[in-house]
Amino acid sequence: MEFDFSPVIDYLPVLLQGVGVTLLIGVAVAVMSVVGGQIVAVITLYTRKMVNWPLRFFIWLFMTTPLLLQLYFLYFGIGEWILIPAIVVGVLGLGFHYMAYNADIFIATIKSVSSGQYEASRSLGFGHLATLFYVVLPQAFNRALPQLSNNMIIMVKDISVLSAIGIGEMVYVSQYAISVTFRPFEFYITITVIYYLINLMMEAGQTWIERRAAYRS
């Protein structure tokens, strides 16, 4: 059992690039899935069942099938007709996946904001849309935060799966480095550690966010 971490040091710039791609994707997907999730939730709740069934189907489908399968479908399926770079497919795929999960959360929390709030707001003279925007959504978002932040932490870990469709995040660049240096253990243990550190930071951020949110409720 002899380990040699010098190749890891040699390939550090490459690894860091991978980390950068990971973080970039993370931010992009987070924004897309949180914003998109709210939009999907609002449309689902405020339109009739006959109209919103595609959305509900979409949510259900993305929640019950594996991410990898969804990515393969999007990559080989859409990639057949239009030439999209892998990274776009990856961000969209992961984005839709978590949009579905987040929409599911938002639907629950929007419903939970009591109808009394809605009535109070309307009686003050706010219109439907204004009520939604200024009264209901902020509260729903607040309530969704714990589960939402959990999802985002899980999402960052799922970015590793994007390596399967050739996106240059941490795992992919490691695999490239391994193909040259033949040091799989050293590289994989390194990115395990990096992921763990990212996770710790995210959990700290989560605690901070939840503490701030507690003031508002």
Partner: peptide, 23 residues
């Protein structure tokens, strides 16, 4: 903490490809 804080996929690759290095 470590198992829950790191991706399952990375754990899989570590054990499958990196495993031989530790026997």
């Amino acid at each position: 903490s470590v198992v829950r804080g790191t991706p399952y996929f990375v754990q899989l690759l570590l054990i499958f490809y990196g495993g031989p290095a530790i026997g």
